[in-house]
């Protein structure tokens, strides 16, 4: 029956998901919202600081209760430029996204860089720019973007 119209049935899988940020995530986002700072959790056993913070060390499995402020200065480790949005529609202006690593932290954050494509390079120093206090809701989008230092 190749080439013939085939009988099909159309539908969707409708749902709205509400994810809790969790024990570690809740404090992480609260610190961003209330104190404009990035906090990680430290594992004394393995001498590792996790960013984003985790409740446990994935290597030794101890529970992590020590929180450390991460300096608001990082380095671009990887870059991509998006020309289409998440629906595949062409963007009016390309969007530069970077994976930024922070000194002393294991992990990193991915976000938009507020610069034209040609001005962003691996190794450049950037810092986190937050939304104004009243607009912050305790989510990752409380971070507006990275900007060059």
């Amino acid at each position: 029956m190749v080439g013939e119209e085939y009988r099909r049935w159309e539908g969707d899988m409708e749902a709205l998901y509400v994810y809790t940020a969790g024990v570690a995530g809740d404090r992480f986002f609260r610190e961003i919202r209330d104190n404009e700072r990035l906090m990680g959790t430290y594992c004394p056993e393995c001498d590792v600081t996790y960013l984003p913070p985790r409740l446990y060390c994935e290597t030794c499995f101890s529970e992590l209760n020590e929180w450390e402020e991460i300096p608001n200065k990082g380095r671009v480790d990887a870059i991509t430029v998006a020309y289409v949005d998440d629906k595949g529609e062409r963007l009016a202006r390309p969007k530069v996204l970077a994976m930024v690593r922070f000194l002393g932290a294991n992990g990193g954050l991915i976000h938009v860089v507020d610069l034209p494509e040609e001005d962003v390079y691996r190794g450049m120093e950037v810092e986190v720019v937050y939304l104004p206090r009243g607009l912050r809701k305790g989510s990752f989008l409380d971070i507006l973007h990275f900007k060059a230092i």
Binding site: Y19, G22, V23, A24, Y56, C60, F61, E63
Partner: peptide, 23 residues
């Protein structure tokens, strides 16, 4: 409040403690 990962961690920690083993 716990994420799925955090719930797993709490359950595993309890089981390992009872077994007297580490990860």
């Amino acid at each position: 409040l716990e994420t799925g990962k955090e719930m797993c961690f709490q359950a595993v920690q309890m089981a390992l403690e009872e077994a007297g083993l580490e990860l």
